[in-house]
Design a protein around this nucleic acid. Sequence first.
RNA 1: GCUCGCGUAGCUCAGCUGGAUAGAGCGGCACCCUUCUAAGGUGAUGGCCAUAGGUUCGAAUCCUAUCGCGGGUACCA
Length: 590
Amino acid sequence: MKTQIITLLSQALHNLDITFDTDKIQVSQTNDVKNGDFACTIALQLSKILQKNPREIAENLLSEIHTCIKKSENTAIEKIEIAGPGFLNFFISKQYYTNSLQTFLHAGENIGKTQRLTNKVFIAEHTDPNLFKEIHIGHVMTNVIGESFYRLAQFAGATVKNVTFQGDVGMHIAKALWGIQNIGEELPLQKTPYEKQKFLGKCYVFGEKHFSENINNAKNEITQINKEIYTIVTNPESNPDLAKIYTMGCKWSLEYLETIYEILGSKFDHYFLESSTFTDGERIVKENTAPKGKKVFSQPEKAIIFEGEKFGYHTRVFINSEGLPTYEAKDIGLFYKKWEKYNPDYSLTITGGDQKEYFTIVKEAAGLINPEWKAKTMHRAHGILKLKTGKMSSRTGGIIRAQEWIDEAKENVFQKMESQENSSLSDFSHTEKTNIAQNIAMSAIKYSILKVSAGKDIVYDEKVALDFSGNTGPYLLYSYVRANSILNKIENLSDITTSLSARNADITVLEKKFAQFESVLEISLETLSSHNLANYLYDIASEFSSFYAHTKIADTTNPDYEYNIAIISVFKNIMKNGLYCLGIKTVENM
RNA sequence: GCUCGCGUAGCUCAGCUGGAUAGAGCGGCACCCUUCUAAGGUGAUGGCCAUAGGUUCGAAUCCUAUCGCGGGUACCA
């Protein structure tokens, strides 16, 4: 409809011999019924250029628009008014809304899916845990944001690849290995994957503490272990004892990670490991180091560096003075691997905000090696999930484990479910209720992350996990459950909604918002801001709740019965697909 | 120091390619279950949009400066 109005306006402008760039015509959907359905500021924009009173311009435009409408036999626009300083307010006919509702209904469960990125390969890299270390709430944040973009790209028709880059070599591993050797505790061989992971995390913290405070010569020993790890991955025989605990630890971590990915709802197409990228990274960096090669990097002393100052950034080390590749070189290796494996059109990486400049610099260097790497890579830095005490760090052990956060939320939801009166869940088994509780808890966690614009810090306090009313994930799920519950009671649903006649009562705000769904999905992906989608879904859930409270929907005596059912049906599909794009799984009962 | 980002209601945040009276949620106040799930709905209250200038018919939005907070700043990731 918006484009129709713009076409109409540009036609009218043309007829009046006014030159104005069509792209600059501003038409927006209004929030207040009295301002019509769409408003245009064209007369205000023109007043500067034409040196005329905006209302006068609006009058002239209006009569020309009417002429154009008559010629084109356009019936969708019912009325146009001039308001305020010179707004043109367009009122749309009921029949138009009936037709579009019918279209949305026809789209069914595919509503929101487009072909925009067909034949494009889109990689989403996120979560990026370090083996041996604990998975904390910061990882959840990266995961939730990344998963959302993965799904948005999927809805846009792209060939999507969900990947993660796991750190299995480097100082953190050395610290953990040293910790295992020196902590003086028995290995939890018979324990659960979670207990094993906790043990590894504890060893890491132990090693880190001894390293940073250099207790018992730990610094030298750990540095030595770090060097050996790089050898072990290609030749385990170089240090069989160390290789044994290294392999064991990696296995434990990977096993546990699978369980947490399962809970988070992420399925990865590929797991990149640092151990398999550092060789390529190292090679490529050396090939491009002055005096030979492309001279991307230089080696003024022992370390190989990238002089970022030339690009307005700062210098970063790619291969350290020990001759070992840093994370920077591993990332170069990752660029290489991604292109070798997928040759993506879009390669998105999600990290914390503290890596914003780091990533920009590595991307800059990568672009000098292969321009495509830079051109097709996007980076979304998100804020830090902070404790009130400050930035959380797994180095110091001051972390909140992802598992604990989720378990706590799940337990809270379960309690809430049990305390509900008139619960529809009374016949459900404990397992079924637990599953529902988990979905609701995850919706609360995911939505609390996605509803604010990525890039901003989230200050975590206990309430985040406890908050289930208002602008929250459970509120959205609840609206879905209520809509679903109504539709389940309708027997001949498809018969009712095949051919609608115009609504007798006024057009609802809810159905006006349906038309925005597709563009919200598009904007969310293009601007890498899922909070647009999150806020949109809250908006329609809120409209739905109000509609629900004021209208008896399943009332067959209501002349708008069929129309109302159609609205609810479309709402349900939009909510389901919208939540899917946020990585939130719907529940049928709660 | 340099550099990037942020500062909107008591709290947490939307709104920022300039447009009609700056919007939500939470908390507090007053109502609503003889209607499909009250994890809900309705109403009232709550704002020098950090500060000071500038551009403009029009600024929370753009520009400049100041203050406050945070990230980054050579061998961590």
